[in-house]
Design a protein around this nucleic acid. Structure first.
Ligand SMILES: [Mn+2]
Ligand SMILES: [Mn+2]
Ligand SMILES: [Zn+2]
Ligand SMILES: [Zn+2]
Lengths: 142, 142
DNA sequence: CTCTTATTAAGACTAAGTCTGAATAAGGAT
DNA sequence: ATCCTTATTCAGACTTAGTCTTAATAAGAG
């Protein structure tokens, strides 16, 4: 679980990869994101601040940032994949209104434990999971 | 939860929709699917049996078939969405190996109850959920 | 400083899913 | 049975998330 540039440098070198300017821009850009973001949002925000990084570079580095635990995959809409900075809040899952796209975050340690147990029973090493509950919020039910 | 053509007719009429030949072909084609399928697989299988239905018609009718409970969304890969016939096995979720794409199905009533409780606490009417556990199976860990 | 090679950028490419507009057919009315 | 309205279908164009290709760049070892 990498928390800052120094740790990221160690992590990336440990993998035998290079510490590039783009990778530093990326961790900078991700730290600035407040809520959930997709690749295009991230690229635009970076560009706005004069930190140009190509879309392809983001896609290429996302697996590394996920592995480092700096970014977490949040949820997927029918269109694309959303991420969030993993630093502040810990791991959590999402409740999504299909009407207004309102998103509620929740944590449930008991569910997480069950998931681990299920993986273990099937001899899987669990790496991550995607759990999204879809429904209608109070307002959208009318 | 619609189980056969007769019930489907009632369901579709109740919605004020028409009972078309294509919709009948679709429920026929879905019944024939053994495992998980995506839209292209379904269209190809139907064509092989002389039941031509356009890709667009499948996409247009999937929400209806989901609502009728004849089809369930199973999981999503980075590429596309997989479904399965909801008839035989009941609702379940999936454990997926990112190495060999092996898929294990599991049921966990305790998790399902927790999900309901979480939705209720947030005043959501839960319609469905997507829970996929991703990791490495025993073989792929080597 | 030099050299190797990992990494990047631009843009072509692929394919899931959506949209458009014309043709068809379901089913109610006569 | 025939007509009429309009929901539905189909073909193919379109959009766009994500991947791939290739040439240019730059990290970092020596
Ligand atoms: Mn979140
Ligand atoms: Mn299944
Ligand atoms: Zn809502
Ligand atoms: Zn495997």
């Amino acid at each position: 679980m990498v928390k800052n540039k120094k740790e990221f440098e160690g992590f990336i070198r440990g993998k035998g990869c290079r510490l590039t300017g783009e990778r530093l821009k990326l961790i900078e850009g991700i730290k600035r994101q407040r809520g959930h973001f997709n690749v295009d949002i991230l690229v635009s925000c970076l560009k706005k601040q004069g930190l140009k990084v190509s879309r392809d570079t983001v896609y290429r580095n996302l697996p590394i940032l996920l592995e480092a635990g700096m970014v977490a995959q949040s949820f997927r809409t029918s269109r694309d994949t959303y991420y969030e900075c993993a630093r502040s809040k810990g791991h959590h899952d999402h409740l999504i209104c299909r009407g207004c796209e309102k998103i509620v975050e929740f944590k449930d340690p008991a569910i997480e434990r069950s998931q681990q147990r299920i993986a273990k029973k099937n001899a899987f090493k669990l790496e991550h999971h995607c759990q999204q509950l879809i429904g209608l919020c109070e307002k959208c039910r009318k």
